[in-house]
Lab assay of single mutants.
Amino acid sequence: MATGGRRGAAAAPLLVAVAALLLGAAGHLYPGEVCPGMDIRNNLTRLHELENCSVIEGHLQILLMFKTRPEDFRDLSFPKLIMITDYLLLFRVYGLESLKDLFPNLTVIRGSRLFFNYALVIFEMVHLKELGLYNLMNITRGSVRIEKNNELCYLATIDWSRILDSVEDNYIVLNKDDNEECGDICPGTAKGKTNCPATVINGQFVERCWTHSHCQKVCPTICKSHGCTAEGLCCHSECLGNCSQPDDPTKCVACRNFYLDGRCVETCPPPYYHFQDWRCVNFSFCQDLHHKCKNSRRQGCHQYVIHNNKCIPECPSGYTMNSSNLLCTPCLGPCPKVCHLLEGEKTIDSVTSAQELRGCTVINGSLIINIRGGNNLAAELEANLGLIEEISGYLKIRRSYALVSLSFFRKLRLIRGETLEIGNYSFYALDNQNLRQLWDWSKHNLTITQGKLFFHYNPKLCLSEIHKMEEVSGTKGRQERNDIALKTNGDQASCENELLKFSYIRTSFDKI
């Protein structure tokens, strides 16, 4: 039985969820670079991206490699990797027998973001014989899940209580170790020597080791999670996991709180800001991140802002960003909400898709409305799209047979046209069989910064309504002859009103 693990408890099935942008060198404390989270699957090609990484700022997932063999891993080693800020997950990587050479110096898994409450997941690794993470000293947050690894031993010899604050939620089941077939031998045991430290858990006094050649490092209890030197002297209180010299914040392997210019500090002093819960960055760093993602459509890219001495992905609820200094300031009234469309555009074809934009005031991208039916549609669209004030790209209304009016965009005031449909149009209306009105132009103002209007096959939309939009939106004169079809717009509506004058002759039985 794995020490510190839980057996036999019912657990939810383990679901495996399925960018080499360097964020800056980590400095003297770390020998390499800070790398983003990685999802490495199918083959070993991307694994080489770990070569210079000291910190993975995010998670590391290595999974679904069915053609790899043990010899493929023999020359692979990433000794610079010290810390993973989120979680480490391995799933069905064939041929991998140990992690001792792959990650010989991995010391800390912070667990800032977890995989279903777990910071370390080893699942269905069919050839893994031992973990071998002999320098792993601290899992700051989260638990361990090690399950269905039929060859995995050296679990009962690990004292997880020396690595985690609590072992109650560890789930370590259905491994070879369960069948008591392992016969784990710690260093020196074969020669009758006791080389590794022994600890007591559940009444068992057991030597602690990761492999037959690597003991588990056990520091004096007084050192807590700070770690200790090879001689057993406690590291500085700002260290986490390990250090090369005692009581020196510049000799830590990793930091308990924050890293700044080669030393570990309790908090980031001005003019620095907390970033990702582990390091200090200056304003320029946060500003660069903001600008890199301002026009990016890459998933996970955030326009970072500053709030409460932190550089964070977005302002919290009730705050909006001051564009001059990136500071989050309290909103006066309802907060603006910028919604970034991942692929640059979004099609609204149902109430469900409209709900995804609920509360958005600025759309960074283009909207395509293609709704053919739905219950209580006008009210639903207004509830979900009615706060949109600005669209950076274009607005396209296409084959939306259920629409009679666009009044559900009740606050839309600006279409920038930074991206144009077919390279020309910022407003595009095609084949809307029941569209009769755009907006009530006596109450609604709309500016279209650039781009043209396109109207074709809107049989109940009168040309007068379209011409009014040209005047109000500032697009009059931009359109070419064929942009607004004269014969297919309003051709099934009563669009022309003329005053009919009647004269009559009164007659009676005795007068003409």
Rank of each mutant, 00 (worst) to 15 (best):
G183C: 07
D177W: 06
K191E: 03
F78S: 03
P31V: 13
K100A: 13
Q204M: 08
V55D: 00
E97V: 14
K251P: 01
Y87R: 00
H48L: 11
C219Y: 01
N170H: 06
S284P: 09
D169N: 07
T68H: 07
E180V: 05
N149E: 01
Y154R: 04
C53G: 01
E33D: 04
P336G: 09
W210V: 02
T157F: 01
L260P: 01
Q303I: 04
D277I: 05
N242E: 13
E147F: 09
H28V: 08
D39A: 07
L89R: 00
C252P: 00
S323E: 13
D248I: 05
C196F: 03
D75Q: 07
D248L: 08
N202M: 07
D165R: 05
Y272W: 07
N242Q: 08
F123I: 00
K193C: 13
G203L: 12
N135C: 05
C335I: 03
L63M: 14
G32H: 13
S98T: 07
T157P: 08
V305S: 06
E231T: 08
I139Q: 00
L332R: 15
K129E: 09
V144Y: 01
N43C: 06
E49N: 15
G203A: 09
V305M: 13
N117Y: 08
C196R: 03
C53D: 00
I185E: 03
R297A: 10
V281W: 01
C286A: 06
C280K: 01
R141W: 03
Q216A: 02
H307R: 08
L60R: 00
L44W: 09
I163R: 00
I306H: 06
L88F: 12
G95V: 02
C235M: 00
F285G: 05
P70I: 06
T267P: 09
S225V: 06
R263V: 13
I158R: 01
A190I: 06
M83T: 05
R256N: 03
C239H: 00
N179L: 09
S324M: 05
S112E: 06
H212L: 11
W278I: 01
I201Q: 03
A119D: 00
Q303H: 12
P79N: 06
R110C: 13
E130L: 06
P36R: 12
D261T: 07
I56Y: 00
L50R: 04
F78T: 02
